[in-house]
Design a protein around this nucleic acid. Structure first.
Lengths: 230, 230
DNA sequence: CGTCTTCTTGAGCCACTTCAAGGTAAGTGG
DNA sequence: CCACTTACCTTGAAGTGGCTCAAGAAGACG
């Protein structure tokens, strides 16, 4: 069963934000698995909000290209980046009528939007969809647990874990091409931008990594990195 | 629809661990909601493993009385307590054939065990059960996100958040009766036992709390605690 | 070429850790 | 009931890893 959906008003409202004249196009991309839940692909400029915390959750999102960060901010401005989402990753899929955190693009991105109501209705009919949704949340939970473990480690260990994770998820051939800034990394790892920079320099000095450019990093000794990662 | 289940061999194996001669009894407690998924109540002694990381996940658990901690340990022994579970809380409910973390009782506890296969079968038939299971994982995820936010705060802020959370969950009348040790609190908040102790002493000195006994704490000024909690 | 953003590096500081000692409470055996 | 043990908690003193503040370097872009 194929469900054709329109992206609706809320999504259309975002269009001006990144000044593209191109209308949103229906797309053959599927949300997940073998179940056909088509959505609309939308271009988002860099550093553009996809949704805010406590906003009504009308869509489920999938990164087609680019990168997204989800985060929460404390009253005094400290920010915790809960996760990074790369091409293929689904985000904003939790049940609940409101989003539990905010989401922004990091770089220019293509995001697939699928109406939540459509997804939920499909889950109602099809147990496999329901299980898949549950699985998505469970994957998020396991990631969040690993993240909590990370936050009790030293700066070096945090960076090691981060780099290995990114290398794996970007299925890197030669060097990692990080989409995010040092500030993003810092806010994800619970460090300051200075400590991130210094630690990368240290890892570079000890030839564990090589800094080709500030955001292009080559892992030269993964076993040492893995060792650091507990 | 009521599903009567037996607790099976794996559960029975645990009996000797806490040396009770009483056989496990079928119980009228329900796992959750209006759906009747009965299980077997089992007594566990304090500091007893309920399940270990990577063990096959055969059951879903609910705390009837007592308290449980879930945790992960790093190779060097550092431990991160991911969550505390109090009476009424369900744990070990994630999909996946293996548990993502370990679980132990903190004090003598009554735990309700429900066969996972039974729960999953019920979810297959009944969309509401499926949604409820998804909801449980989602609640865990939101809690984990809050926990990550907590781990970037100062020691005072972490303790404030912890105390408020406990007070709320224990639906406290006068003073909190903490089931867990300072070490448990430290491992949950990403601090050392000494820092936890010192910080509580500080909060006590400034009359924000009152230490009636080491594990009996009265919150004297919740608004200040809330302020600390961002 | 200048401007803006992002990243790096240095120096000093501070919150939390580490190491060490002592105190308190509960249980156990005499 | 008391001496002894054990587990748990508190407190002190010194050390340190990461933070803060500050300045400069390296890119990106018009």
């Amino acid at each position: 069963m194929t469900t054709q959906i329109s992206i609706g008003e809320v999504a259309r409202d975002r269009m001006p934000k990144f000044g593209r004249g191109v209308p949103c196009q229906r797309d053959q991309h599927m949300l997940f698995g073998r179940v056909e839940l088509n959505g609309a692909a939308m271009p988002f400029g860099r550093n553009t909000e996809v949704y805010g915390e406590d906003e009504p959750a009308d869509y489920v999102y999938k990164v087609l290209s680019g990168a997204v960060r989800t985060y929460k901010v404390l009253s005094d401005g400290r920010r915790q980046i809960l996760g990074f989402y790369l091409p293929g990753d689904v985000f904003g899929s939790d049940p609940g009528d409101e989003h539990a955190c905010s989401a922004e693009t990091i770089v220019d991105s293509q995001i697939l939007l699928v109406r939540r109501a459509t997804v939920l209705k499909a889950a109602e009919r099809d147990g496999e969809v329901a299980r898949h949704l549950w699985g998505l949340t469970a994957t998020e939970l396991r990631r969040s647990h690993r993240h909590a473990l990370l936050l009790i480690k030293s700066a070096q260990e945090r960076l090691a874990a981060f780099l290995l994770d990114m290398a794996e998820r970007l299925s890197v051939k030669t060097a990692i091409e990080l989409p995010m800034s040092r500030q993003d990394i810092a806010d994800h790892l619970g460090l300051t931008i200075e400590t991130v920079s210094r630690t990368l320099t240290q890892l570079s000095s000890s030839s564990v990594i090589q800094l080709l450019a500030s955001r292009r990093i080559m892992l030269r000794n993964r076993s040492i990195l893995s060792e650091m990662n507990s």
